[in-house]
Computed example of a mutant assay.
Amino acid sequence: MNTNLKVLVHGTGFAGQGHVDAFRAAGAEVVGIVGRTEQVVQAIAAQKSIPYAGTDWSQALDACSPNVVSIATPGGAHHESIKRAIAQGCHIFCDKPMTTDGVSAVELRNLADRKGVKTAYAASFRYTPSVRHAKRLVAEGAIGSPTEVECISHFNLERGIPFGWSHRAEDGGGRLNNNFTHILSIVTDVIGEEIVRVTGEVRNDLGRAPIVEGVHNFASRREHIPEDLSDPSLRWGESNVEWSYTVMAQIKSAWSQKPVSVLFKHGSLVPRFHDDHIVFYGTEGAIYLKGHYGSGELSHYTSESGWTALKLPDDLARTFPDVAGETEFCWHVLAREFVRDIQGEAVPPYLTFREGAQYQQIIDMIRAGGTSIEIPELVRGERG
């Protein structure tokens, strides 16, 4: 690997630290990290042995002169940071959501295209081993012609999770931005990338959340849930985003003459009775992936044998990094492909700002409500 590839990371929480590890594993040099709070960013830089730490993004771009920037902040902080990095000619690795709305996402996509920089959009749970296995099986004809997909998840999240970016549309919050993006990416990876039609509805069934000081890392936010939510001294913030959604889509597939029907059903505040799952149905069988992102056991159905659990093929298993943690694993795979592409190696297609902008526009359409929406050319764009 080319050790001269220099990466600057924006964000010091769970995602920022995960991006640092992923790019280092891909052979790149992490030269700096930027965060909001001086004390926090200095501590993370020392912990991760990162030479530069700061709170000013523009100063960091000038001081570090990176080839790549990794955007690991909440979605509301993406737009200006990415614009500045593009202007400096940096390649961009951006976690989902790309921005807070379709207009700003399209602007960034167009800026990156004109500048000629490479982009990676990390709606990255498509890289779990079970999803990769399902993609291979569908391509091999294991279910015949795909007909429909069912994606069901119920998280039963605690209503007392402290108020933060995930509760605010202007900060990139909402379940469409932070759950649907991953599942849509999984389905399109297995079935086909061309989304033809979308309809859906959302529901904000949370209302409010307690305001708690000292919450820095999204992954540990549950540790800060107040013991007594009826305490009259608590302050509350109003949520303005969806916590549940139902979306139906049609997606073109190379293995089907008709568009494949897809149901996305997510309730983040309600309990599950059966397992969360993703199921790909076809004319000759089905593939069941256990778990809300389909990262659990894979089972294959045929009329002759019924449901059979399948082991991950050895040749596929050998292509994956040895990384603990589902989220971290997927960052490692995408960062590896992105670095290889920048260095001129041939790599499989990965999600870029083209898809990131498309997803943000689709989310805007779903949130706006109404009847079935045919995805226009503006949304589909052109793959680079």
Rank of each mutant, 00 (worst) to 15 (best):
G27Q: 12
T128C: 11
I50F: 05
S104P: 02
A15V: 15
S81W: 04
G144C: 05
A53T: 00
L61K: 01
V138W: 07
W57P: 01
V68I: 15
R109V: 04
S145T: 13
S104M: 08
S81R: 08
A25S: 14
S81G: 10
A139D: 13
I50W: 01
K48Q: 15
P129C: 00
S65A: 15
V40L: 10
R132Q: 14
F14A: 12
A142N: 03
V41M: 01
R36T: 07
T128D: 06
V7P: 01
T99V: 13
L137C: 04
V131K: 02
S58E: 14
T12S: 04
A43T: 11
S124C: 14
I71C: 05
C90E: 08
Q39I: 09
N110I: 10
A85G: 13
S145N: 06
R126G: 02
V31D: 00
S145C: 04
E29R: 13
G116N: 02
I92M: 02
C94N: 14
A25K: 14
V20T: 13
N4P: 00
A22N: 06
S104Y: 03
S81C: 12
D21Q: 13
L61T: 03
G141P: 12
N110Y: 11
V117T: 10
T100N: 02
C64S: 03
K115T: 11
H79A: 10
E107V: 08
V68L: 10
K135G: 12
V34F: 02
V131M: 05
I44D: 02
R109A: 09
V41A: 00
Q47E: 14
